[in-house]
Design a protein around this nucleic acid. Structure first.
Lengths: 184, 184
DNA sequence: CCGAGAAGTTGTCAATGGCAAGATGTATGC
DNA sequence: GCATACATCTTGCCATTGACAACTTCTCGG
């Protein structure tokens, strides 16, 4: 784990972080592998060694995102409101990962690391949604409703589509919205 | 409105349609203005005349998307369930527009045509969400919950994240999910 | 200590975005 | 009828990019 020299030592993580920065700044269509290489201080072809091509890098981002989401859900516990807030917290904290994860066309969704992490997150997600209560059709509808409202709020928040006073905490805004799915 | 010749006659719409096709096939990062020009049978620089650059084309797509959404909401009427289903129907029918609209970083969100169409859609959206019932805080929370659940379901459906039997109608899947927000 | 392989570099090529300058068609005023 | 302004489209061009191939440097296990 050297810091400099011929071998960077931690290029994979450095490039991933640079990608998150670059995509976070100007969106998903105006970033280049060569720019990431420059930010990391390595030659233009170095990233290809770790990711192959652009889709490979996005695949790694998606896998990392699903793993982070699963961690967040696991820490939040099975209660729906807590799980929903954890979902929103993750999305707001990692908007680039979140955005990539749900655009399967731009990465290799059948990648093994992605599938493993996605299934782990999926299990925790269902578990959280089931605590809403109703189990009419095995809880499928309830689970989808819970996932939908959390995912929708997170997406709209990230897109800046929800008008709020400056400085508003996204979780404070999310809580009453998610609670609306429970009773009244 | 000639079909062929030096002047294409309807290049703007042709290129927009080609963009929808291309983005729909391989996602938001692997499409090129030149490819659209080839599909439309014009020279590589012709699209630039109508859209300026890639962001300009995406801006036009977003504006068209908001206009289509507003039309769909207006036709559906103010009832929440109907408005929500119209929202999902629009997103599933125009996934590329939908995807672009909510990624403000990749186009010029301050474009006048975009703002006008977005505000029209926003008014109809609030109107639809208000019929859910509760008006505790002026209906803001209810409106956000309704928008969130419809937006979330549509996003997840488009992403292929909701597992269903092949051939399932997205609206049949959406209806019970949206209804869960009303009573039980 | 040495051989295999991982990590990184240099070089190259077709393709792209964007710009400039020119060609072609259309519309408007007189 | 016609000349002139303008929108539309083309051609030509250049820096940048993604991807690949061949090569160099470092690390690590036996």
């Amino acid at each position: 784990m050297r810091a400099i020299g011929y071998h960077h030592g931690d290029l994979r993580r450095t490039v991933l972080a640079a990608a998150v920065d670059a995509i976070g700044e100007s969106g998903l269509d105006s970033w280049s592998l060569r720019e990431l290489a420059r930010r990391a201080g390595v030659s233009h072809a170095a990233p290809a060694h770790h990711f192959g091509d652009k889709a490979g890098l996005l695949t790694a981002l998606a896998a990392e995102g699903y793993a982070l989401l699963a961690d967040a859900l696991a820490a939040a516990g099975p209660d729906f409101l807590e799980a929903g807030l954890a979902y929103v917290r993750f999305a707001v904290a990692h908007p680039v990962h979140f955005g990539v994860m749900f655009q399967p066309k731009i990465y290799r969704a059948d990648d093994e690391a992605v599938q493993v992490a996605r299934e782990r997150a999926g299990r925790l997600l269902r578990q959280g949604a089931e605590t809403v209560g109703s189990t009419a059709d095995g809880g499928a509808t309830t689970a989808r409703a819970g996932w939908s409202i959390a995912h929708g709020f997170a997406s709209l928040w990230i897109a800046g589509a929800i008008p709020v006073p400056p400085g508003t905490d996204p979780l404070d805004a999310a809580r009453p919205v998610l609670a609306r799915l429970l009773g009244r």
